[in-house]
Design a protein around this nucleic acid. Sequence first.
DNA 1: CCATATTGTAACTGTAATGGTTACGATGGC
DNA 2: GCCATCGTAACCATTACAGTTACAATATGG
Lengths: 143, 143
Amino acid sequence: MSANSRLTVAAHTLTWIGLYQRRGHEVATSEQIAASVNTNPVVIRRLLAQLRKAGLTDSRRGVGAGWMLSRNLSAITLLDVYEAVEPGPIFALHRSAPDPECVVGHGIAPAMTAVYDGIEATLRKELAGTTLEDVLQNVLNAT
Amino acid sequence: MSANSRLTVAAHTLTWIGLYQRRGHEVATSEQIAASVNTNPVVIRRLLAQLRKAGLTDSRRGVGAGWMLSRNLSAITLLDVYEAVEPGPIFALHRSAPDPECVVGHGIAPAMTAVYDGIEATLRKELAGTTLEDVLQNVLNAT
DNA sequence: CCATATTGTAACTGTAATGGTTACGATGGC
DNA sequence: GCCATCGTAACCATTACAGTTACAATATGG
């Protein structure tokens, strides 16, 4: 499908900040997070800016700058993160509209849309069932 | 997500063949299908070749060549089609492995994998609940 | 055994998404 | 005013996707 890693990296990032704050630190820098994720700090800053727009994080500038969570890990579900970083749907319809004169060409888009809508709804329900606190606990139990 | 249209086009294609056969025709050509889908016949042939590999279609060469279904529409679920045309998973893990020295970097992949596996399983269950006969009926009822 | 319609497949192209990288101005506490 | 860090634009390499051209392989009817 050409899946991307944004949900994974976003969950990693937020969980990292949450654990870091829990250990008594005020803010986390994009450089620290990038070291854990093994990527470039700009990639993390871009992601965190999206998450801030969604109200999940906040940032501080100047000396002592860095990032913090806007809410507790237990108050952030994977659905929140998903909606913040994944704009589009999972399945796409036709690239260019099919022949409207053909019965199938005319009716296939609404038919598939109905199926896809059901799938997206189920996906959301599933994502909403896991909080980042759950993820952190799972991480800490991973030996 | 950069979703692709393969499941949509594959469902369209198979439904079209099913209806065409139901109307008394032996085989459908990639050109006819491409006209309904509004794309290039080669795109359809490539797709149909994948579906044939999955045992959903069959083809005939020479004069009177074309494509036919291997099973009835009611015996093909969207999961069959999905598995035939979508190789990869929906969500990807990190592009390059995170820092294994970091607690989060070490445990995040298995944690997210558990979530993703659950989602894929649910997705499959959902897709398995709809047959192409259902899709065709939906299409025919779309006025 | 030839003419013909169509499959089968390789090769190339344009477009877009993804993520990595560099660069540099903006910020704000010290 | 210094300095660490954010904020963001710009650019690049890689890859996926779908469209297109081209042409050999096939097999049937005449």
